[in-house]
Design a binder for these strands. Structure first.
Length: 215
DNA sequence: GACCAGGCACATC
DNA sequence: GATGTGCATGGT
């Protein structure tokens, strides 16, 4: 499946950000939100020269919310960002290099303890900002694998992540590309209502078509 | 106008 | 423990 995706789409150059901190912020802003909206919000932060830990930490919640408005859920996400910034600044002195020197499974727990950082956000930070070999799964990963009959629809985040890590060679660059390609094919084909006709993964579908689709 | 988007926390049963 | 709901902008 990876080869089929890579042949169709080529390298995705993820994460689309200039710094690890931008990845962290983007990971929160991207929750259930289209990337174009996230980019507007990131641009606002860049234009205001606030895209660094200390500066964002010192910013009022209301001003932060206004800057990230285009990303949607802006009052929630402002609070979530501030919760995460509290960890970064108060525990690691605003130094991501120190934060990322922490043992990965310990850091994962610390990230998950932040209100507003769930498993996908934590893993995105670990893989795309910290460069740790953790497989990031999301809605598209779940749809692609369950519709192809590879996992049960009821599998949870951790189960799905485990499945991927058990079946994909452990390599940061490969994990990076694989998740990005799943998102890419998801955008185009693996929607809530699937469009399998021209999908590069069509050959991998079971005989009766995608699993668990009504109609 | 309907549907969709790179989740998460919280209320309620 | 499982299921439902609010959050919000912006594109197709």
């Amino acid at each position: 499946m990876f080869e089929a995706l890579y042949e169709r789409y080529g390298p995705q150059h993820w994460w689309p950000a200039e710094t690890p901190f931008e990845v962290m912020v983007g990971a929160v802003l991207a929750q259930n939100t289209s990337w174009k909206n996230v980019r507007r919000a990131i641009e606002n932060l860049k234009d205001a020269e606030l895209l660094e830990p200390r500066a964002l930490y010192d910013l009022d919640a209301e001003e932060l919310a206004e800057l990230i408005r285009p990303a949607g859920y802006f009052t929630r996400k402002a609070q979530r960002l501030r919760n995460l910034l509290k960890l970064v600044v108060e525990r690691y002195g605003g130094r991501l290099d120190r934060m990322f020197a922490t043992d990965p499974s310990t850091l994962r727990e610390e990230l998950l303890s932040v209100n507003g950082v769930g498993p996908e956000t934590a893993d995105s930070i670990l893989l795309y900002a910290a460069g740790k070999p953790t497989f990031v799964v999301d809605t598209y990963t779940h749809r692609v694998l369950s519709r192809h009959g590879l996992v049960e629809a009821e599998i949870g985040y951790e189960g799905l992540k485990e499945f991927c890590e058990d079946h994909v060679p452990e390599d940061v660059a490969h994990y990076n590309e694989y998740h990005a390609l799943l998102v890419r094919v998801g955008h185009e084909f693996c929607k809530p209502r699937p469009k399998c006709e021209a999908c590069p993964l069509k050959a991998f579908l079971p005989a009766g078509g995608p699993v668990g689709i009504e109609g």
